[in-house]
Computed example of a mutant assay.
Amino acid sequence: MPDRIEQAKRALRADLRERRQTLSAHAREVAEAGVTQQLDALVERLGARSISCFLSTPTEPGTHAFVAGAVARGIRVLLPISRDDGLLDWSVATPDAEIAEGLFGMPEPVGDVLGPIAVNDVDLLIIPAAAVDRTGMRLGWGRGYYDKTLGSMERCPPVYAVVFDTEFVDDVPRDVHDQPVTGVVTPTRTLAISAHTA
Results as ranks from 00 to 15, higher is better:
185 V>C: 09
129 A>M: 03
30 V>N: 07
93 A>M: 13
82 S>W: 05
67 V>M: 05
10 R>L: 10
119 V>A: 03
14 A>G: 05
116 P>R: 06
104 F>Y: 15
89 D>H: 14
44 E>N: 11
175 D>V: 03
38 Q>M: 12
31 A>K: 08
86 G>V: 14
184 V>R: 07
19 R>S: 10
111 G>M: 01
68 A>I: 03
198 A>M: 07
169 V>D: 06
163 V>G: 07
81 I>H: 07
194 S>C: 03
115 G>M: 08
63 T>S: 15
84 D>K: 13
130 A>Y: 11
33 A>H: 11
187 P>V: 08
162 V>T: 04
65 A>Y: 06
188 T>G: 07
176 V>N: 10
25 A>T: 10
142 G>V: 08
72 A>Q: 09
36 T>L: 12
176 V>Y: 11
1 M>P: 00
48 A>S: 08
136 G>E: 05
169 V>K: 09
164 F>V: 12
109 P>I: 11
127 I>A: 09
96 D>R: 13
81 I>Y: 05
169 V>R: 09
52 S>M: 05
152 S>H: 02
100 A>F: 05
72 A>G: 09
166 T>S: 14
49 R>K: 10
159 V>P: 00
82 S>C: 14
106 M>R: 07
51 I>Q: 04
51 I>E: 04
177 H>P: 00
36 T>H: 14
28 R>Y: 12
28 R>W: 12
130 A>S: 15
